[in-house]
């Protein structure tokens, strides 16, 4: 991964801070968020690394990783962060930008009838809210 002034995307970094209402610079990289994350073993980069990449303005690289799509919004990181950073909100902001680029959109037609019948509405409404 390369870091130089040309690839730092200040504008988008600020927009992500605003959307998520978080101050990225407050993170001191203790790693507690990643230690408790139930999906960390599936993620290309772990939650604290996401924050670090954002601090450094490596937005294009952050957009390429799968991590936000494996985040379940379980809020474990939120309840454990000693610097009161809400990573769930950061992940949501990242998902939002990728959805705007029509990546990872949810297509309800792909659902089988069996799933549609059995799965709680709660799951369908959630997916609708998060992925369309």
């Amino acid at each position: 991964m390369e870091i130089n002034i040309e690839i730092i995307n200040f504008e988008l970094r600020e927009a992500i801070e605003e959307r998520s209402n978080q101050k990225l610079i407050n993170c001191y990289q203790c790693g507690k968020c990643s230690a408790g994350c139930p999906s960390v073993h599936l993620m290309d980069v772990s939650p604290h690394e996401i924050v670090r990449m954002l601090q450094l303005g490596l937005i294009d690289d952050v957009f390429k990783v799968n991590s936000p799509w494996y985040c379940t919004s379980c809020f474990t990181c939120v309840s454990r962060c000693p610097r009161a950073i809400d990573i769930a909100k950061i992940m949501e902001a990242l998902r939002y930008y990728n959805l705007n680029a029509a990546v990872h959109l949810f297509d309800p037609n792909t659902l089988s009838d069996e799933v549609k019948d059995k799965i709680p509405q709660q799951a369908l409404v959630s997916l609708w809210r998060k992925r369309t």
């Binding site: 909100k89 949501e92 509405q121 998060k130």
Partner: peptide, 9 residues
């Protein structure tokens, strides 16, 4: 709404 909206706007 099933999920609490996490984006500030």
């Amino acid at each position: 709404g099933a999920v609490y909206p996490l984006r500030s706007e």
